[in-house]
Amino acid sequence: MQKELDLFFMKEPTQKTKVFEILFLMFLLLSFGLNGFCQQSEKVKIGVLVNFANQPIVLHDSNYVLKDGSFVKFEILKFYLSNLQLLLNNKVIYAEPNSYHLIDCAVLSSQNIFLGLSQNIAFDAVKFNLGIDSLTNVSGAMGGNLDPVNGMYWTWQSGYINAKIEGSCLLSPEEKKEFEFHLGGYQNPFNPLQTIELNTTSSNFNIALSLDAFFANIDLAKQKNIMLPSIDAVTLSKRLSKCFSIQ
């Protein structure tokens, strides 16, 4: 062994070892490259789609029709999916580390989540939180998706906003016909955090949020604003959590 090492590193390289070295390096580079390429294509991918009656949501312009026939338009749709886990027979087989995803309908790249594991893993369910857990809420300033520059942290009091749904509808009694739902907080009795579990065996699947189901139970003429932790925020968060499905 020592002799071989000597040959490799210490001794003046002969023509033979030089060729061997070059071949070896090429092999290394190639295998790393291939490996990287394969890993990229084989990672478990989760797409997050936000729909209204099976139509993908386009912010600002498109109108969507509520149950009673009135139109609704969306300006801001942002929410946190956190603590992503894959399950098999009710056992957690993968928990994504540092798992905080800010899904923003205005940012296409935010709607694709690549898990750090290859597709040849078997699972039958995916589990995640809608929002940010209370421990993270009290852990001080954080970066990346949790950075307060994202506008998902309340300023007048501490706590993350788990979901922001803003838009306009003629039903709203507000002057500009707006509605604003900021669902957040972390302290009991108004902790709105929801855990969602959906069945899927595909390693390339979409999680869909169907907002028509969410708005089906809201009377925008009466309820058009939620801006603080409250029982209403908890109720709407529960309702929102029921609108997720696998597609």
Partner: peptide
């Protein structure tokens, strides 16, 4: 209203 010094300046 604020529970962590880091978030106070916000």
């Amino acid at each position: 209203a604020i529970h962590n010094l880091d978030m106070q300046a916000l």
